[in-house]
Design a binder for these strands. Structure first.
Lengths: 332, 332
DNA sequence: TTGAAAGCGCTAACAT
DNA sequence: ATGTTAGCGCTTTCAA
């Protein structure tokens, strides 16, 4: 592998001149520039990024901490973050945490400042205190969950409002016995979506029914199926369900089908996330569709701002748009 | 950020001794070891990986080139590769190509030897010649597609056999008019699966019907729906379809449902990949289930072997196991 | 067992 | 406009 020195020797100039050419410094004698460019081409020179970054004091990497790539929402999001980062010549290092606090803490401290210039994190179980032993100086952007008392940048949608719109849609369809699947004692987003759910019920004058609010330990398809099975075994089952994500909804859809419950006539279902698969389920899923590209873009932009601007900037909270995607799980 | 030097000064020893402790070198005087460990702890020292790797001549990174993280198969696979790589203290750098030759070539040359120790690539459109201008010296493992005349390691399943088993399953169910969705002029795996399809028909004494073999430009849900719509418009539609991946099958499922065609009674459907979502579709999808964890593991192992052993080793071809997952899209 | 020092490839301050 | 050189933080050879 050719080094700057090799190229310099071949072109008969100093490393400085070669470095100047490589880095697009303007003031190089045309003749020298030409010789250098030829030498560059003939050696197939490629800068050693490790060395460059060592010298520059940056790494060229962004960290992306998320629960699991196999979860559609995160797979889709990660793809978009990769694209947004690529536009600024950042490579992205993905760290999977499986949503456990233990691994989230590890990831947080593993993302040392030597390895990355900044990180986008999508925590699920992290506590406020976990940010204490964090390597300082690593710019962070938090996605989704919003741990309020940690002063870092945040990108997400208005979960309360989104949930409210989802449930309002069910109410507009004449449903009154509306369940919720996905309550979770620790998760902030769960609390917000639950709040939106209650909000919508209240503004429609529907009394809340605690037995219709089901928890979900994890937000996988199996959990949704389980919860729906439970609801259908109730003396008086609901006529609609708002699921806190699409996977829960897909699971609910299956549990309903297995029991011969017709969706949407007997039971309307709304999800959250707009996974690609949700447009193809049978019936297709009505869901809240966050603008994932906007989330990825905002996260990368926020990181750039903070890497450039330093830690004295006040933490920002960017709200990205979303929409309600109406499909056949609520309207035949 | 504390450096080795800082720690050495604090502990009153040389950097060498600190380095010895950090790297687990055994022969350090217990007393010094203790002092160093204390200094390490009190400074919160973290090695600068860039510097370490610069010195060691390795980077600590693995490249992973794939079409798109939002495609479930690749999302799931990427997650498993990350896990396998983590066991050997490798970070993984993911490069998305969207399956275009252009971007696959770029990715290949971008994965310079300075950046990564080796790469796992899952090409879709790459030609043999594209490997020519490849930075040499970068150990490569190819997944899925098997460009035969490029001498690099390969991991995959026996596609011919898998397809044969899938179609044989349909035949065992009494189906005789069996379509295939996913033919593609350039893709090697498509050719193999088609071969297995023909193989199974032949050994059952079923005459092949060219009009039942449908191409798919891309392997997305929409393409499957389109192809199925085409098949159902035929004067004599098939009674079964073998789709070259699960996304095509999910699309086919939907197109069938939209036209009131009952699956599996009127039409049996088999997929390929065993995406997580396929266990939850309605009906659930019978599919070929490759052992993705085994693929990820084998790829990382092969890379380790080659990074250690050099380029003189003969290219290996590892076949990983798979199974036929029978669900309700073929048997009610 | 440990210290001193070279050097990985690069950038940039300084000198010319 | 370009050459010389220090030094980023680390590992490792050589000497002691």
């Amino acid at each position: 592998m050719a080094t700057l020195k090799d190229v310099a020797k071949l072109a008969g100039v100093s490393v400085k001149t070669v470095s100047n050419v490589v880095n697009g410094y303007d003031f190089v004698k045309p003749e020298n520039r030409k010789r250098v460019e030829e030498a560059l081409a003939s050696t197939g020179y490629r800068p050693n990024l490790g060395a460059r970054n060592l010298r520059r004091g940056r790494t060229g990497f962004l960290g992306l901490m998320l629960p699991e790539l196999s979860i559609p929402y995160f797979g889709e999001l990660a793809g978009l973050v990769l694209q947004a980062a690529q536009e600024h010549e950042w490579n992205v290092l993905i760290e999977q945490t499986l949503g456990t606090r233990e691994r989230e803490r590890n990831a947080l401290s593993a993302l040392g400042p030597h390895l990355i210039d900044g990180a986008i994190i999508s925590p699920e179980a992290l506590h406020t205190d976990d940010f204490g032993d964090l390597a300082p100086g690593v710019p962070l952007v938090m996605l989704g969950e919003h741990v309020v008392d940690v002063p870092i940048d945040h990108v997400g949608i208005d979960n309360v409002q989104a949930a409210r719109i989802a449930v309002r849609h069910l109410i507009s369809l004449g449903r009154r016995r509306i369940a919720a699947i996905g309550a979770h004692p620790q998760r902030h987003t769960a609390a917000q979506r639950l709040e939106g759910y209650h909000f919508a019920l209240e503004e429609a004058g529907v009394a809340p029914t605690p037995e219709l609010v089901l928890p979900a330990l994890r937000y996988h398809r199996a959990n949704g199926a389980e919860a729906m099975a439970h609801l259908l075994a109730l003396p008086e089952p609901p006529d609609a369900v708002f699921c806190f994500n699409d996977l829960l909804a897909i699971g609910a859809l299956r549990a309903a089908a297995e029991r011969g419950v017709q969706v949407p006539s007997d039971m309307a279902i709304v999800g959250f996330d707009n996974n690609e698969e949700s447009a193809y389920s049978l019936p297709s899923l009505t869901t809240i569709a966050p603008d994932k590209a906007a989330i990825a873009q905002a996260a990368v932009d926020l990181l750039r701002r903070r890497i450039a601007g330093g830690s004295d900037l006040a933490p920002e909270d960017v709200q990205t748009p979303f929409s309600l995607e109406i499909r056949n799980s609520t309207i035949a």
